[in-house]
Simulated scan of single mutants.
Amino acid sequence: MPLSPSEPNTAAASPGAPVLTVEGLHITVGSGRAEAVRDVSFRVRAGEAVGLVGESGSGKTLTCRSVLGVGAPGVAVSAGRIDLAGTELTALSARAWEQVRGSRLGAVFQDPASYLNPSITVGRQLAEPLRVRLGLNRAAARERAVELFASVGLHRPEEVYHRYPHELSGGMLQRVLIAIAVAGEPELLVADEATTALDTVVQAEVLELLARLRTERGLALLLVTHDLAVVAEVCDRILVFYAGEIVEDGPTAEVVAAPAHPYTEALLRVASIGDWRRRDLAVIPGRPPEAGAAPAGCRFAERCAFATAACTDGPVPLTVRADGRRVRCTRADELALSGAFAAPATVTDPATVTAPATVSDQADRALQEVTA
């Protein structure tokens, strides 16, 4: 079955068969069945890292939690399919999900302490699943757990094995959670705001770890974040979400250097990173539409400086440009030709322009490289 409405560009993706295929995904929330995610389609190939970005409430986390089958009460997949290398996830029973999570699918979330039992050592919390899933005896499971702790960069892993969560720092806890997530040799790792609560130094270390594990294990990575610098450092491709829809999809370097959608351009200005750092700091005016709202045309029109009457005439499809990138904007080609997103004059004193605290220097350097 072909992707709907159009297949994303895969020319720049890492070679490999699709591990995750999402087609025509619709997600509803609440008793009123408000549609929070509408017609989302994308693929993640083996060894590829794809980043989902957008404001809070844009639908990126709902999409990833649906991939993991862990939607909150009242959240439901109302249409579409989610395929994990030949397994249709939306049709799985609770028992079948137990065979997928922790083995074929791994997950890392924000605030790792909330996902660990405070009364059990972290080593035991890793060793027990190894015994259940792999049939290892107690000694073999302990040995494997120590090896996994070492592989994620935890110093003195034998000592860490006997520690309780409250005895470890936030960065160490995140490494523990990553070790648990990859213990079953998953095909896909979902990282949902996995570095948000960490300081910039630890954040850079965790991102480096994810990149290394992806290379060593051939992991497909689906990363959810609001931080464009994180995506620029780790991901091959960016999916930009707005009001429950994908509005832009393309290779990271190309999207950062030359955004095609006004919302993506606005996000880059607000983040003030890489080449965009020399712009005046700004905010995106207005607010996104409420979940379930169905504007007649472009959902970003009310906040867009480039909107015309034609933008609200009817639904705006996600179309494929000549370069293979997908964009949901009726004026995308026109804006690109006119240079509407060209950088304005630089600020008088660049030293006064500072990036948000969540942006690491390492990530910023990576952005400057891809936009050079």
Rank of each mutant, 00 (worst) to 15 (best):
R131A: 11
Y164S: 06
L52F: 15
G54I: 09
D364P: 02
L210N: 01
Y263T: 07
S93H: 06
R95L: 05
I180S: 09
R303N: 05
R321P: 06
V353A: 15
V201F: 11
C311S: 07
A366N: 13
E265S: 14
T319F: 03
T63I: 05
H155P: 07
S6C: 15
A72V: 07
Q125T: 04
P295H: 09
L219R: 01
T28G: 07
S360P: 10
A220N: 10
A322Y: 02
V146L: 06
V231I: 13
T28V: 11
C235K: 04
A253M: 04
A13C: 13
V160L: 02
E265H: 15
S66Y: 00
E23V: 13
P317I: 08
H155I: 10
V316E: 11
V202G: 03
L3T: 03
L228V: 10
D227Q: 12
R328H: 09
N117D: 15
P356N: 01
V256G: 04
I178F: 01
A310N: 06
E254H: 14
S151K: 02
P251Q: 09
V270S: 13
A181T: 00
V70F: 00
A301R: 14
Q203G: 02
L20H: 02
T358I: 14
S14E: 12
A305I: 05
H261P: 05
E254G: 08
G250Q: 08
G218H: 02
L209D: 06
A232H: 08
E185A: 12
V22D: 03
V347T: 14
A332L: 06
A366V: 10
W276G: 04
T252H: 08
I180C: 11
S31T: 12
V160R: 12
V255C: 10
D227N: 15
H166N: 14
R163F: 01
A322K: 09
E302H: 08
